Structure formats: structure tokens, C-alpha cells
Amino acid sequence: MKVLGVLLISALALVAAVEKPVPFKDVPLGRKISGRITNGYPAYEGKVPYIVTLLFDNGAGSGWYCGGSIIGNTWVLTAAHCTHGANSVTIGYGAVWRQQPQYSHWVHQSDFIQHHAYDTSTINNDISLIRTPHVDFWSLVNKVELPRYEDRYNNYYGWWALLSGWGKTSDTSGVSDYLNCVDIQIADNSICEAYYGTTSITPNHVCISTPENKGSCSGDSGGPLVLHDDNRQVAIVSFGSSAGCLSNSPKGMTRVTSYLDWIRDNTGISY
């Protein structure tokens, strides 16, 4: 009986490992969604002053939306799968309505710093920096702080955090016009490992279990996950399941604490 149990667990693990993570900008919805950032709530003006809209252009007449976060007067943090293949980006600051930012900056790909080890197959090291023109901070446009070096080994399991973005609202719609938020509890990585396998999930990830289908969706890529307790960004929206946003599948995010040295070496920002 014990042997049978081991075999069953092994078989389930093999099935789970087959599930391939999909970058959130490409995640299918599966069926209609009642919320924007899945089952979230609208943000009020100034609630998330650090989030930016990112409209990428591949230089061939097509593009895609992502989110990002302001981490310094001249720096935005986002996902590598957002910058990958892009020729330029238009950054919108201080928006709640996606198409009505306080102001915008256009940035060429020469100012993208994509992680050198980003893997398009496993979506590992899914992190990029964008060097921007100088931005002054005020109530509607401000930076988010990163984790302190003393917290770089904190897994944050069980901590509550805020996720925000302009993700899709239905099977056929584009990204949301209005900024939405959702409160998320960070899960143990083992939940994501059981679904995506240990090749895709590493200690460089944060896992969101989304038992109530609350979380990110297509269009939220690159957006920030920020702790309730001290307003520090601990993760970047990275990937979900090919089964869709409402499949109750866990979602993977890039763990910011794993890249504090890389961020410091490229930007000089550290805490």
C-alpha cells in the first residue's frame, strides 16, 4: 500500500510538471471575468503612486501592455518577458485611467537592462530595468522601496501584499481602462512546485495560490507585489497557467530579494 502511494504521488508529480508556465501577457482567460485584476477592486487616485503603465513597441507595428514600478528617480522595474523583443516603450506615470497618465516618457531599448540569464523557456530570471528621464516625486507619482538587505533570505510565506494592474476584464476585451488592486497572501513555493515542477519554480520565485481566483491576469505582467506591512516590493508579476486566469492554478512571480545585488550593481539603489 505504501509503494502504491509513492507511485501515485510520483505520477501526480509528473502530470504537474507537464504544465508549462506562460508569461502573463500571454495567459488565456478561459471564460469571462467579473473583475479586472482578477476579482479585485478599483484603486483610488494616489493609492498606488509607484505603478506605471508600459506600452511596448516591437518596431514592426505591433505592441503589448505591461505594468512596472518606479524604484528611483530614473528607474522603473518590470519583467524581462515584457522588455524581450521590444524596440521601445512609452511609460505612463500617475494614472488610474490607463490612457490618462499625469505625463508620459518614451524610452528606447538602449535603456533597457534585461537580466542576462533570462530564460524564455522556463521564464526564470524574469526581471528587467528601464532607465528613464528624471521623475520628480509627489502624491500621485512616487517610488516604492525594495526589500532591505537584511531581508534577502525572508521567504515572506503568509505575508499579505497588494497587487495592482490594468489586466484584462473578459475573454474578448483588451486590458482594463482602470487600475485595479487585490490583496494577496503569499504562499509556500511548494504549491507552485507541485503544479509547474521544480524546473520552473526555484527559490527565485514567489508563489501565489489564488484559491478564490484572486490575482493577476493577462496585461498585469511586470507589475509590483508590495507588502502591506512596510510598503516594500517583494515580487514582480511573471507567469500563470495555460489553463487561464480563472483556473484556480497558482501563479508565479519573480522574487525581488534574489536580485538585490543585480539591481544595486545596475542602478546604485539599495536599502
Rank of each mutant, 00 (worst) to 15 (best):
S221G: 10
F112R: 02
G215S: 04
Y41A: 05
G222N: 12
A13T: 14
P203F: 03
W75Y: 08
H115V: 08
I127S: 01
P28Q: 08
W106M: 11
Q100W: 12
S139L: 14
G197E: 01
S249F: 04
W97K: 07
S221R: 01
T78V: 14
F137W: 13
E150S: 14
K251L: 11
Y196I: 14
D126C: 09
P211F: 05
A79E: 04
K168C: 05
V18S: 14
P101T: 01
P250I: 03
V52S: 02
T38P: 14
Y196L: 12
T90F: 01
N39Y: 09
A235N: 02
N204C: 12
L260I: 07
D57K: 09
Q233D: 10
A16P: 13
N154D: 13
S104R: 13
T122M: 05
N180K: 08
E193A: 06
T120L: 01
I191S: 04
N180G: 07
T38S: 15
V256P: 06
V3S: 05
L7T: 00
L227Y: 06
S104W: 09
P133L: 10
L7V: 05
D126Y: 07
G240W: 02
D111K: 11
V22M: 00
V89G: 01
V76C: 11
H108W: 12
F112Q: 00
D229C: 10
D261S: 13
A17E: 12
T53S: 06
I33C: 05
A11C: 12
Y41C: 00
G61T: 02
K251G: 14
W166M: 03
S247V: 00
I123R: 02
T122C: 03
S241R: 01
P203H: 00
N266C: 10
F239Y: 07
A11I: 14
T210N: 15
T132S: 08
S258Y: 11
Y157D: 15
A11E: 07
P101L: 04
P203Y: 01
T254Q: 11
D57H: 10
P28T: 05
T83V: 10
V144N: 04
N124K: 10
A11M: 12
D126A: 09
E212I: 00
T267H: 14
K168L: 07
V234N: 03
T198P: 05
L12P: 10
G268R: 10
F24S: 04
G68E: 12
G222Q: 11
T257S: 12
A86W: 04
D26P: 10
V52D: 03
D230T: 07
P49M: 09
N58P: 09
Y195F: 09
T267V: 13
